[in-house]
């Protein structure tokens, strides 16, 4: 059976095509202003990559903030449910997931059957993680994808104490002004984000086999820091940014069956 999963996030839109149990193709692109158009574009691309047409897809699942704006008839699921399904697909033995996206971050705890035991979304003042990282990359004049690597080359531990990304930004700007080395600032930024994430995970007493997903899971600096701070075995799946979309596809398949 061919199913598709769409994750219409505030910053990026992800689409996955699932053939039985195998990922045939996936696509990630910026959402921009028009969610409908972005989804359509991502869908067209992914269909082309998979060499199939929309008619071949038997069922579509959708998730993410823009799930209601998706221009296809779809089974809708919350991010919490889709993240869980996606994580269990990659790691059937996992019992928790941390999803770090552009605007939001969440921690989910589930049991072996995939029942959600508890979850927590970031509180108001801790939102905007991804955007904060992008802004910091700009301020420090480094490429976003290089940030993690550079942070691991730090020579001294410094602290960015603010929870709020607006204040953290001023804090970092003042460090730049004080000529603190880039690598050390980057390390401080990653530690600050990691400690927020750990706080979230601790709120639901998350431990054991935990999967980190979302675009920011590709950042080696953050994952390393999280590993230092958490009492869990953290695993990053191969395509961390499409796990939610994959979960949506799995949801669609389940409903169809």
């Amino acid at each position: 059976m061919l199913t598709a999963g769409i994750d219409a996030g505030s910053l990026s839109t992800k689409v996955v095509i699932l053939n039985q149990d195998k990922i045939m193709a996936y696509e990630v692109l910026a959402t921009g202003i028009d969610i409908g158009a972005a989804t359509k574009r991502a869908m067209d691309n992914v269909l082309e990559k998979a060499g199939i047409s929309l008619q071949d897809v038997e069922s579509i699942g959708s998730t993410g903030v823009g799930k209601k704006k998706v221009p296809y008839k779809s089974v809708q699921g919350t991010e919490v449910v889709c993240d869980t399904k996606g994580a269990l697909y990659f790691y059937p033995k996992s019992n928790g997931v941390i999803d770090i996206g552009g605007e939001n971050c969440r921690a989910i705890k589930f049991d072996a059957e995939g029942n959600i035991v508890d979850f927590a979304l970031n509180d108001k003042c801790a939102s905007g993680t991804g955007i904060f990282l992008d802004a910091m990359a700009k301020a420090l004049r480094v490429k976003p994808e290089e940030m993690g690597e550079l942070s691991l080359q730090s020579t001294e531990d410094i602290e960015v104490t603010s929870m709020c990304s607006v204040f953290a930004e001023s804090e970092v700007v003042s460090m730049i002004h004080r000529k603190v080395p880039k690598n050390n600032i980057l390390r401080g930024i990653h530690k600050s984000i990691a400690s927020r994430v750990v706080g979230l995970a601790n709120r639901i007493l998350l431990e054991g086999n935990v999967i980190i997903i979302g675009g920011i899971a590709k950042n080696i600096g953050l994952v390393t820091t999280l590993n230092e701070l958490m009492n869990s075995e953290l695993t990053v799946p191969e395509k961390p940014e499409v796990v939610g979309a994959l979960g949506a596809a799995l949801l669609a398949r389940e409903r169809k069956e």
Binding site: V65, G77, T78, E79, V80, V81, N104, E113, N115, I116, F119, L121, K124
Partner: peptide, 23 residues
């Protein structure tokens, strides 16, 4: 008040409750 986030919380919570109930 943040309508989107509040509803996202309720959606997720209710959905997870329903899922455990079904099983």
């Amino acid at each position: 008040y943040d309508d989107v986030t509040s509803k996202a919380n309720l959606d997720s919570f209710v959905e997870s409750l329903l899922a455990s109930k079904r099983k």
